[in-house]
Amino acid sequence: MSEPSIFPPYPHRHLLGIQNLSPVDLNLLLDRADAAVALSRQPEKKTSTLRGRTQINLFYEASTRTQSSFELAGKRLGADVMNMSVASSSVKKGETLIDTAMTLNAMRPDILIIRHAMAGAAALLAQKVGCSVVNAGDGAHEHPTQALLDALTIRRAKGDLSRLTIAICGDVLHSRVARSNILLLNTLGARVRVIAPSTLLPTGIHEMSVEVFNRMEEGLRGVDVVMMLRLQRERMAGAFVPSVREYFHLFGLDTRKLALAKEGALVMHPGPMNRGVEIASEIADGPQSVIQEQVEMGVAVRMAVMEALLDPRKSGGRA
């Protein structure tokens, strides 16, 4: 992939969210990701597209899956990858996000990947550093590479998204994955449903271009894709839902509920799963589950995003 790119240039410097991306932008990233999947399936997986470039992963929240996915993506593209994990950094000693950003910026990286518990952290960082920034999840705001990998998984299995109905089920209120997916799927013309108890839906959900359901039995009827969301443990016991038992009974994806979806509907989960809370084991491991494919697509999408942002036809990595 070091020969002149067959893809048109990508017009943005950062990937902070799905908001404000056009269908053209999204399809470009997905097309690039398709190529990256092919590459990743070869025995020789490494290219030199990002050789000499420096990638820093700045993860303020623990994340095995996303962090290793970004790390592997960078390495497959030939970049030098450094992981800053918060547990062993000066952040522990009270350094602010901006001070950490300025310090890292002085080391002249080309791309910063940030995961942070506060919404807006990625955007704040992008204002302060001279390199590209990729949001790997900021609070309950956005997680754009997750939405892209979900879209890639769906597109490869079901084709054109504009013909599909997709149900997003569970803790929409606290989910950055849900927000990014609602934006992305709508931009690509899919019909989006959300299914959750009202306590787990954000205010204004009815104005987010989705159909809202409070019962799986109603919302799952005839959908092509069922996206499950993770329910955090601390939200289970009486605060937002009364108990795991009731949540699984009403909102857990099991054989009976899945049977209401279209035949062959995809089952997705961003991970990590709570088996027996939002999803039954036989579904997670069943023939309709594409949860493992999602992980594979994750690496490809992150390769595509970093390549697109650091395209040499643009002014270069650093401003």
Partner: peptide, 15 residues
């Protein structure tokens, strides 16, 4: 409405 009538955690309304 709340477990043990303690006013903190809601009960399983559905079940």
């Amino acid at each position: 409405m709340t477990r043990g009538l303690l006013g903190a955690e809601m009960t399983e309304f559905g079940l």
